[in-house]
Design a protein around this nucleic acid. Structure first.
Length: 940
RNA sequence: GCUGAAGUGGUGGAAUUGGUAGACACGUUGGACUUAAAAUCCAAUGGCCAUUAUGGCCGUGCGGGUUCAAGUCCCGCCUUCAGUACCA
């Protein structure tokens, strides 16, 4: 019998699907285990060999946990809202829903043939109305909540209204907009409903606000900070500008501290936690109020160094700051306006790139030092960012490099407030070594004490207090796109109203064009039927809008991260029509035990989803406030691109060895036309149906009779022609080979290049494995008693593989399998007692061949339900061991010694040995070091 | 600049956490089988020197150190990758 992998794999994939082998039940006597993958965006290009890496790892782990007797939840779905389907729609007119459906079908086919143990009965798609109904529902819950700092959780907005009616807002300790006005209960009760709504909007966890956003004209939409890379859009690399727009925002800042604290109790990688910490950017300091122009205005600043308050010699405002216009003196007005205009013209990117140039201008205004009452000149400088803190710095040139540079440049005074420090050359910013001087009541104090004292004194005069500042900004939640979740929102007099949850979902309307409207409204503005009738509670024709019973609906849609921020909860009870998941299901599954996905989501998805989980926890919807106990970032599989070299301005292409000193242009070619020795298949290339024409008249200059291509390791992408399709690998070598090889390539977390040539190693391992059980006459396995050697091989394999899986070192267990099969082949092992458990060990990695051999062994149930073999140490125990004997650390020879020998006996035996005596040459050793089971070292 | 990760043969990578560095695999070379090729099997494969038994020296980015013993620990550098950046 031959190892016919294609037949075997198709057979078992069908078996698993028909028998629902991997369907998880929402209750069980077994302990639960939840293994989650980051669900994919179904792109039109399909999967390449890099995509399944994490899925294979999680699948191995899920299968292993099943063997160990866990009730395993291992679901999969699709993050199916997104830009590419929409852009395809703009180009071709095809509805994104159709594109998405087709792409999902391709993904599913590709995933199925790799043999994953997913429970497909729980599949989710974020673009499915039955799913986004609950995304809309969560949005409404956020709208109906505010953050109470006293209880440190989200609470019902109705409670806040009651409070306002009883005692006004003076005692309310909420996370809210900065510019809240104080009011009494009496004042509140006198307000109209509309006015009250406007105020409540400043408290809600999702709110409508005029915000400065990252506008990408090319994409016609706003982008979140994490969707911008190096000042251009992550997708497409288009320029991004700042623009003010009315947008929905998420008050994630309310959760900044809890998002930070929560990192302590989850087992995620240090680098990922560190990224999130940096992104949240907590800094502790003080807020200080400076009076300006004899109390005409007040400027609030945030500083981490209140201890340096006496070193302030000027203040700097961001050019965009609201106060600039107000405080500028008439003499300075022209200069200031010119400067503000000039900075506004510079793009964010230019400003970032050009850090060295110091620019700024004096406003003519002076602030008053809170203690010395000395006048402090107020400047504007573009090194101060409007978006951080209050957009103002109290400049302490002696203690801050940037302030120092600014002061030097404009010849401003640099008072020294540090004891024994020379600041004539550069600023001194080492907190720990600081002793304050020339600072009145702070003199002689160190950083810690001076900070405390300064804050105390500021509080005494009512001009400041201790403050913690976070870099984390509220997240803009509106996108001017079609292919996203519609908001369950309509507008009455410009004020947003939620649609009652019983009428959800609000489904996407049909539109003729997927572009913004001529008046610049988002694509939903093209819909003819997109208004809300409060009498029938239905979506109706726009024409019927009368602002008494029929109102316009929100035209924006939600961003990509909306649907992915809670999907892990949906899998627990994916088809529930009445809740995101039933209480029973949520309480049973609790949270994700193992989450595997890419690190590129560190400050996007992985932060937003933690935020939503904490919110849902506050509202009692979910039972845990961190949803993933452990997270592993799989590395990326890179492609090995191939290049041909065209001589500039000609139609001749030079082989790699000939390009020296020539002016050549490297051009990507499809990797499938290059063999393992980097030789180009010229005929194949010229016959390529896509690009063959381009190479028809090309002259290839060979070296030694062949054309050698250049190589480079790059990210796999269609445009680099270095994509390797798993379909081809599966057809040529089988899914089990693909799975083993992806694991064998190297550590899971690491970035590593794909090289198809290497797959022959794992493929021949599978053939050897097959031969161990089966020959031309059929099954070789029998009930013979296993030999000691075979038992040893089996048990050391059990131990190693178990350790490997638990440490996620899947690469080394593949080697372990190879060694085991080689040893057993040499031992001519035919014993069922050895070969049966071996199959269970291999089955998480290579499930198809394991199932086939398992059934040949006479089982009529899936190997997936078999128990993981028990490790028995007794089989590893050897009576003796070959000890390396070294002299002064250098290995000289080996000696066979019994393992149960005591240290003293070993020492005696070794010293008595004639080889030892020979080495010693009559000398007496100083010391003999015996490490039982490992080594004997003689010093002397 | 800061933060995090990492530097081991021609290549991907092992090394039980201080105990025989280079497991396993690719590639390469030689051989067997074959008319031939594929497939399969066997052998060699870190470098240098020596030798026809045996051996010796060097070797885990660089320079020091601790130790009987260092890829692993300590100190000082260098390089690469990733994230982040006028964050007050």
């Amino acid at each position: 019998m031959k190892y016919n992998f294609n037949e075997i794999e198709a057979k078992w994939q069908k078996y698993w699907a028909e028998n629902q082998t991997f369907k998880a039940e929402n209750n069980s006597d077994k302990p639960k285990y939840y293994v989650l993958d980051m669900f994919p965006y179904p792109s039109g290009a399909g999967l390449h060999v890099g995509h399944p890496l994490g899925y294979i790892a999680s699948d191995i782990y899920a299968r292993y946990k099943r063997h160990q007797g866990f009730n395993v939840l291992h679901p999969q779905g699709y993050d199916s809202f997104g830009l590419p389907a929409e852009q395809y729609a703009i180009q071709t007119g095809q509805h994104p829903a159709i594109t998405t459906k087709d792409n999902i079908a391709t993904y599913r086919r590709q995933l199925d043939q790799i043999g994953f143990s997913f429970d497909w009965s729980r599949e989710v798609r974020t673009s499915d109305p039955n799913y986004y109904k609950w995304t809309q529902w969560i949005f409404i819950q956020l709208f109906n909540s505010w953050y109470n700092n006293d209880s440190d959780k989200a609470e019902d907005i109705g409670e806040l209204e009651k409070l306002f009616a009883i005692e006004g807002n003076a005692n309310v300790n909420a996370v809210c907009d900065d510019d809240i006005k104080l009011f009494t209960a009496e004042e509140w009760n006198k307000l109209s409903t509309e006015e009250q709504q406007k105020i409540l909007l400043q408290y809600r966890l999702t709110y409508l606000a005029e915000t400065e956003v990252n506008w990408c004209p090319a994409l016609g939409t706003v982008l979140a900070n994490d969707e911008i890379v190096n000042g251009v859009s992550e997708r497409g690399g288009h320029p991004v500008v700042r623009k003010k727009m009315t947008q929905w925002s998420m008050r994630i800042s309310a959760y900044a501290e809890r998002l930070l604290q929560g990192l302590e109790k989850i087992d995620w990688t240090d680098s990922l936690k560190e990224s999130q910490r940096n992104w949240i950017g907590k800094s502790v300091g003080a807020s200080v109020t400076f009076n300006v122009n004899k109390h005409i205005a007040k400027i609030e600043v945030f500083t981490t160094r209140p201890d340096t308050i006496f070193g302030v010699s000027f203040m700097t405002l961001a050019p965009e700051h609201d106060l600039v216009a107000q405080i500028t003196t008439p003499e300075q007005q022209a200069e200031v306006e010119a400067y503000v205009e000039a900075t506004a013209k510079r793009s964010e990117r230019d400003r970032m790139a050009d850090v060295k140039t110091i620019t700024g201008v004096f406003t003519g205004a002076y602030a008053e030092h809170p203690f010395t009452k000395a006048p402090i000149p107020i400047w504007i400088g573009d090194y101060v960012l409007a978006g951080y803190g209050t957009g103002v710095v109290m400049s302490v040139p002696c203690g801050d490099e940037r302030d120092y540079a600014f002061a030097k440049h404009f010849d401003l005074p640099i008072p020294n407030i540090f004891e024994g420090i020379d600041i004539s050359e550069k600023a001194f910013s080492e907190k720990e070594k600081t002793i304050i001087a020339n600072s009145d009541f702070l003199n002689g104090l160190n950083y810690k004490k001076a900070t405390k004292r300064a804050i105390y004194e500021l509080e005494q005069i009512g001009q400041g207090q201790g403050k913690t500042n976070y870099r984390l900004r509220d997240a803009v939640f509106s996108r001017q796109r079609y292919w996203g979740e519609p908001f369950p929102v309509y507008y009455v007099n410009g004020l947003p109203q939620m649609i009652a949850t019983e009428y959800l979902p609000i489904e996407l309307p049909e539109v003729e064009k997927y572009l913004p409207t001529e008046t610049g409204e988002p694509p939903l503005g093209n819909a003819t039927k997109w208004a809300w009738d409060i009498e029938t509670n239905k979506v109706v024709d726009n024409e019927k809008i009368n602002h008494t019973t029929v109102f316009p609906l929100e035209l924006n849609t939600m961003p990509g991260w909306a649907g992915s921020s809670w999907y892990f909860n949906r899998y627990m009870d994916a088809n529930n029509p009445d809740a995101i998941a039933s209480k029973e299901a949520l309480n049973y599954w609790q949270d994700v035990d193992l989450y595997i996905g890419g690190s590129e989501h560190a400050t996007g998805h992985l932060l937003y989803s933690r935020f939503w989980q904490k919110f849902l926890f506050d509202k009692g919807v979910v039972p845990t406030d961190e949803y993933a106990k452990k997270l592993i970032n799989q590395g990326m599989i890179l492609g090995t691109s191939a290049f041909v070299y065209r001589e500039e301005g000609t139609n001749t292409y030079l082989s790699l060895g000939l390009i020296k000193d020539k002016n050549v242009q490297p051009i990507h070619v499809k990797v499938k036309y290059v063999n393992a020795s980097d030789e180009l298949d010229i005929d194949g290339l010229k016959a390529d149906e896509e690009f063959g024409e381009d190479y028809k008249d090309v002259e290839f200059i060979l070296e030694n009779g062949v054309y050698k291509v250049g190589r480079d390791v790059e990210k796999m992408s269609k445009s680099k022609y270095n994509v390797v399709n798993p379909d081809d690998i599966v057809a040529d070598y089988g899914a089990d080979s693909l799975r083993l090889y992806e694991m064998f390539l190297g550590p899971l977390e690491q970035y590593k290049p794909w090289n198809t040539a290497g797959i022959s190693g794992v493929h021949s391992f599978l053939k050897k494995l097959w031969k161990l059980y089966v020959d031309e006459n059929g099954l070789k396995v029998s009930d013979v008693t296993p030999t000691k050697d075979s038992l040893k091989t089996l048990h050391k394999t059990i131990k190693k593989v178990q350790d490997d899986i638990e440490n996620f070192s899947f690469n080394t267990s593949v080697s372990t399998f190879m060694i085991a099969v080689n040893e057993l082949t040499q031992q001519k092992c035919q014993s069922k007692a050895i070969l049966e458990p071996l199959l269970v060990l291999i089955s998480p990695y290579a499930p198809h061949i394991a199932e086939e051999l398992w059934s040949l062994l006479g089982h009529n149930t899936s190997i997936a339900t078999a128990n993981f073999p028990e490790f028995n140490e007794n089989h590893l125990v050897e009576s003796s061991k070959n000890y390396p004997i070294s002299f002064n650390g250098k290995m000289r020879f080996t000696m066979e010694l019994p393992l149960d020998m005591s240290k003293d006996e070993i020492e005696k035996t070794v010293l008595a040995n004639e080889k030892t005596q020979e080495q010693l040459g009559g000398r007496t050793p100083k010391k003999v070091i015996v490490v039982p089971g490992k080594i004997v070292n003689i010093v002397g």
